[in-house]
Computed example of a mutant assay.
Amino acid sequence: MKALKAQGLKPAKLIVRALSQGARQGRLEFGNFSAPCALGRSGITALKREGDGATPRGRFAVRYVYYRPGTRRPRTALPLHTIRRDDGWCDSPADRNYNRPVKLPYPASAERMWRSDGLYDLVVVLGYNDAPRVRNRGSAVFMHVARGNLEPTEGCVALRPKDLRRLLSMLPRDCEIVVSI
């Protein structure tokens, strides 16, 4: 995105809007693409805290994609990485690797990326609280596969698998997501 900004260009934007104040579902739009999405169990907040179950409001870079081997490789212009069984994401605010990928087992608290429920079979890492990282402001805010009938997340944005795959096939390398109420 720095290259685009240096040229005076704006990055492509995904827009996520909650259906109402405190809503746990919303709508994600990108150009002509529009799909329902799940939000955090506590809705959207401007003051995100670790473990609050809220989706952070704001503008965040879309960094890269993880996908699980054995599932169909997504078509995308975004950087693509495979998830390995020992991949984790540190969610311990006191740890030096807070809100960063880590290898499991890890001495501090870390979320497992290789999940049996399929939610992380396809994961888009968002640039939330990563540069700079602020303790207790929240970690592991992703866009990932939705549970059931768009059930609430722990703070992420989640889409039905077919919608997430379709969206990924349209996204340019430099883009951002805007989450609002």
Rank of each mutant, 00 (worst) to 15 (best):
D130S: 13
Y66W: 15
K13C: 14
R165W: 12
V157E: 06
S34F: 06
C175N: 07
L39M: 11
G58C: 02
R59E: 09
K10F: 09
G155D: 00
V178A: 12
R147F: 01
K2I: 05
F60T: 02
F33Q: 07
C37P: 01
K13S: 15
R24F: 02
L104A: 07
G53K: 00
V123S: 12
L4T: 09
A158P: 04
G53L: 05
G70D: 11
R173A: 14
K10V: 12
R165K: 12
P56Y: 00
N97G: 03
C175R: 12
S20E: 11
S109T: 05
T76E: 09
P172I: 08
A3H: 14
A131R: 12
R59S: 10
R160T: 04
A6W: 11
A140V: 01
L167F: 10
R73P: 00
L4I: 11
E111P: 08
D121M: 10
L9Q: 13
S20H: 15
E154N: 14
G31W: 04
R133W: 05
T45R: 06
P161H: 02
V179H: 02
E176M: 15
I15W: 14
Y98S: 14
K5Y: 09
F33Y: 07
H144N: 01
G58K: 03
L167C: 08
L167P: 06
F142D: 06
P93Q: 11
G43N: 06
A77P: 01
V141Y: 00
G118M: 03
V16I: 11
A12V: 15
R57F: 03
N99Y: 01
